[in-house]
Amino acid sequence: MAKFNLNINGKTQEVEVDPSTPMLWVLRDHFKLLGTKYGCGIAQCGACTVHLGDDAVRSCQLPVSSVGDKDITTIEGLSEKGDHPVQQAWLEVDVPQCGYCQAGQIMTASALLEKNPNPSDEEIETAMNGNICRCGTYTRIKKAVKIAANSVNA
């Protein structure tokens, strides 16, 4: 067990856990930030995607000991009122079916647009290909990413 000071959603928080504990479980079990989802545990499905600094990362493969003083942003911290352009676009297109993967999809999409505000279809596919949607909402996800891109650029 070791103590870690983590910067999560703009706040510094302390946790005492085994250093190998993935951030996914630190977020869910210790900080009760439940929006970040467990899907596969091996960085194959993207349900656990969070931002580490500006990068979209799979929190199930991110040991707490490797985070250091980098900022972590989860779906709960993406925007104060749930009105990030990507979230708004998701609502406009009414993307979700079961909804389980959508926080991860939104975190991947928002990191993409931060770095590439005007992605091509191919760039969207490449960025989003690590996020599985078992319900099959991919065409809507792509549409929402484009709408969000337009609103970011407007």
């Binding site: 929006g35 609502l91 979700p96 926080a103």
Partner: peptide
């Protein structure tokens, strides 16, 4: 007439809606 998903906002903001989120 098309109505938006009543849980849409909760889903896109990561609210604990699922069984696995039970505390």
């Amino acid at each position: 007439t098309s109505k938006k998903n009543v849980d849409g906002h909760k889903i896109v903001t990561g609210k604990p809606l699922f069984g696995i989120d039970t505390q």
